[in-house]
């Protein structure tokens, strides 16, 4: 029998891997992929509780999370394209226009 904790721990592990990716990588594309990983971890949580409570609202919220993830990917990749056409780089360390 798979208990709820199994799913919660899986979600925690995936979320933490996403956090490590966001904090330590230099390629902005992989940072965006790590953010997608974190959103997926949240979805596992929502659906595990939805299954446990036999309440479908968790799945409805997971749909909204997926919508936000799609919007975030579209805008984020648009920013990557704009950044690359201006600065010829995908390295976040070289994007220092707003540093002083």
């Amino acid at each position: 029998m798979v208990s709820l904790e199994h799913y919660l721990i899986l979600s925690v592990v995936l979320f933490t891997i996403g956090v490590i990716g966001v904090l330590s990588r230099r390629n902005i594309l992989i940072i965006l992929m790590s953010i997608e990983l974190m959103m997926n971890a949240v979805n596992i949580n929502l659906i595990a509780f939805s299954n446990q409570l036999q309440d479908v609202i968790g799945q409805v919220f997971a749909v909204f999370v997926i919508v936000v993830a799609a919007a975030e990917a579209a805008v984020g990749l648009g920013i990557v394209i704009a950044m690359f056409s201006n600065k010829e780089t995908v390295n976040v360390g070289e994007i220092d226009l707003m540093k002083w």
């Binding site: 997926n40 596992i44 299954n51 799945q59 997926i66 993830a69 799609a70 990917a73």
Partner: peptide
């Protein structure tokens, strides 16, 4: 697959179609 084991078939389909078929192709 984990979603399927949680009996969330709709979300599993959405995951494959939207994430793998949409967002990832964009990436």
């Amino acid at each position: 697959g984990v979603f399927l084991s949680l009996r969330a078939e709709f979300l599993a389909g959405v995951q494959v179609i939207v994430y793998v078929g949409g967002i990832l192709v964009l990436f």
